[in-house]
């Protein structure tokens, strides 16, 4: 369930809002649920709200794990 997507923060706006981007499409969302965001962060967006910050190091680790699998087989 729950369609949510990683999008990049382009700009932080007033009233706990932010502009985010995904594949050349921009969207204004609420960041009321996530503190201390910075421009350039990736957030998981669901129904117009950022739910979590995406951790680029963890993402890289998971991708490395996939690649390891590739090397092993």
């Amino acid at each position: 369930m729950c369609l949510a997507l990683p999008a990049r923060v382009l700009e932080l706006l007033a009233d706990e809002q932010a502009m985010v981007e995904l594949g050349g499409v921009t969207k204004q969302i609420s960041v009321a649920l996530v503190d201390d965001l910075a421009v350039g962060d990736y957030v998981i967006v669901h129904v117009g709200f950022a739910l979590a910050r995406l951790d680029p190091e963890e993402a890289a680790k998971t991708l490395a794990l996939f690649a390891e699998m590739a090397a092993a087989s």
Partner: peptide, 23 residues
């Protein structure tokens, strides 16, 4: 799309699938 496309790679998928089948 960053953090989406990398997780849809068919070649990697077949490798993981091969590991599952092997284990």
């Amino acid at each position: 799309m960053k953090y989406i496309d990398e997780f849809r790679d068919g070649a990697l998928a077949r490798n993981i699938a091969a590991s599952i089948a092997g284990e």
